[in-house]
Design a protein around this nucleic acid. Structure first.
Lengths: 259, 259
DNA sequence: TCAAAAGTGTTGCGGATACACCCATGC
DNA sequence: GCATGGGTGTATCCGCAACACTTTTGA
C-alpha cells in the first residue's frame, strides 16, 4: 500500500508543497481524509459554553465530540466549516455568512482516528447566546455544554477545545472579537461580562469602560437607546459593534494569567 | 465521482470531524493530497531572506516556490515539515530537531494546484544565517532570497509567505523567538538588528538593552566572553538564548505598524 | 430608604521614551 | 584623535490601576 506518489522525487522533478510530481496517480496510495472540526463558543449565564454533539456510534460511542464534517471535493476548508456551522447550530445561512470564523490549527497525528488517516482543520467561532441550537437536521443532536463540565471527549477533541479556549482568551486582548459573543445591541456591562467570563477575572468597571470607549471603532453608541440589565440599577446605554477589528492599545488581562 | 463517503450521514450516524461513517470506503472518492509548505526565514546582511526553490517543471516552471512536500502515510504534518526542512536546508538532523517550527495555517482552496486537490499545512521556521543551504539532495536547489526581491511565486505561495512574514513580525513582540535568528552566541546588537530588520524600524539601543535584560530568561550572559562586531567599537558581551519563551511585558514595535 | 448597576472624576505610581554621557577598540 | 559601537545613568511624560463619588432605577 505504501505510496508511490509521495515518494516520487527522482530526476530533479521534486515536488514542493502544492506540487505533484509527474506521473502521479491520485488513487495509487492510501488517501487522506480531510475534515473540519468546529470549536463554537458562547457565553451563557456567566459561564463559557461549547457546542458539542453526542456520538451515537463507535468509536467513542456515547462520548461528546466537536461538530464538524468532511470537506467536499470543491469546497475550501473555511467554506466547509461555515456549512457545518449552519447545519449544526440551525442558524440561518445569512447570519452564518457574517460570523467570524477563525482557523485555529490543523491536527494531523496519524492515529487520531483509529479507522483511517484523517487530517482535520479546526476552526473557532464565537456566537451570541442563541435561543437554542435546535434548528433542524443535525442541530437536533447539538447541545451547549458548560466548559469543562463533561468528562472525556472523543478523539483528540479535548486538545482542540483546550487550544481553542486558550486562543479565544488571547484574542480578546488585542482584537474586538468580544462583541461576537454579544447580541446586535448590548450594554458595556454585558461586554465586560464576556471578558470576565472568558478570562475568569473581575475587571474594574470604570477603567474597562474608558478603555473600550477610547478605542475608535470598537463600539458605537445606539443613539437614545437604553436598557435595564440586572432588573435593578440605572438603565445602560446600548452599543453596536463598530468597524474596528484590532485593539490598540490592547486590553490586557490582569496578573500573568489565570485559567 | 462525487463522494459517497463524505455525504453519508443517514440514520443519525452522522460523521463529526475526525469521524468516518460506517461503510465508508477510503478509495471511493477523489482523494485529497496533504502536503506541507515551509516559510523559512533568516536575517542576512540587514535584510530578511526566505528559503526558496526554483521550479523545474510545469506548472509555474522557472518560478520560485516554497520548499515542502508530501505528508507520508505514517507521519504527522509537523514531522513531515521537519523532515523536509532537514532535506532542503542540509542542516544536520539533530539541529533541525531542536529548531522552533510553528504551524502557520492550512491552505485549502480547491484550485490552488491546477492538477489535483492539494491541502497544504504551512509552517514557519526561523534559522540563523547559515553558511549555505547546499548540503545535499534537494538542498542543491534551495536559495536564500531577500524578501520581496523575486517576482511571482508559484501557486499561492506568495500569500503564504506574506502571512508568514506578518506572523513573524507579530511573534517578535511577545515571544523570545528573535534568538532563533541568531547563532548560539550573539551580542545584544545582533539581537537588536534582528528586530530592526524584521520590523523595518530603528530601535533605541539603551532602551532595547534594558527591556531584553529586564525579561528573566530571555537571554543569559556568557561569562567573560566578548566579541568585536563591526570591526570597530567596544567588544560586546555575548549572550545565549535563555529558557523563557514568552515576553512579559511585550516588546512593542513603535508607531502602529510599518511594512 | 436601601441596594444595585451605570457613569464620571481624580490621584499616584510604574514604565517607557528620549536623551546625555562614559568606555573600549580600530584606523 | 576620531569614528564607531557597547554600556550606564536620568528626567520627563503618559497610561493605567485604584478608588471615591454621583446618578438612576427597582424593591
Amino acid at each position: 500500500m505504501t505510496a508511490v506518489g509521495p515518494r516520487a522525487r527522482e530526476g530533479g522533478a521534486r515536488g514542493p508543497a502544492g506540487n505533484v510530481p509527474e506521473g502521479y496517480d491520485p488513487h495509487a496510495f492510501e488517501p487522506f481524509a480531510v475534515t473540519v472540526d468546529l470549536a463554537v463558543f458562547t457565553v451563557r449565564g456567566g459561564a463559557l459554553h461549547a457546542l458539542l454533539i453526542r456520538r451515537g456510534q463507535e468509536p467513542y460511542a456515547g462520548a461528546w465530540a466537536l461538530p464538524g464534517g468532511f470537506v467536499l471535493p470543491r469546497e475550501s476548508a473555511e467554506l466547509a466549516a461555515r456549512r457545518e456551522l449552519a447545519e449544526e447550530t440551525g442558524l440561518p445561512d445569512d447570519v452564518v455568512a457574517g460570523l467570524h470564523l477563525e482557523q485555529l490549527r490543523t491536527y494531523s497525528e496519524p492515529d487520531r482516528d483509529p479507522r483511517m488517516r484523517v487530517v482535520s482543520v479546526a476552526y473557532t467561532a464565537l456566537v451570541p447566546d442563541l435561543p437554542e441550537p435546535r434548528g433542524g437536521g443535525d442541530a437536533a443532536h447539538a447541545e451547549w455544554i458548560a466548559f469543562g463540565t463533561r468528562g472525556q471527549l472523543a478523539f483528540d477533541h479535548a486538545d482542540i477545545l483546550a487550544d481553542a479556549r486558550e486562543r479565544v482568551g488571547a484574542k480578546l486582548e488585542y482584537t474586538c472579537l468580544a462583541t461576537s459573543f454579544c447580541p446586535p445591541e448590548f450594554t458595556l456591562g454585558e461586554l465586560r461580562q464576556v471578558y470576565e467570563t472568558v478570562w475568569g477575572t473581575a475587571l474594574d468597571r470604570p477603567n474597562f469602560r474608558r478603555k473600550v470607549l477610547a478605542t475608535p471603532g470598537f463600539v458605537e453608541q445606539v443613539a437614545g437607546a437604553s436598557r435595564l440589565t440586572g432588573g435593578r440599577g440605572k438603565p445602560a446605554a446600548l452599543y453596536r459593534a463598530g468597524p474596528a477589528t484590532a485593539l490598540h492599545p490592547p486590553l490586557l488581562r490582569p496578573e500573568g494569567r489565570q485559567t
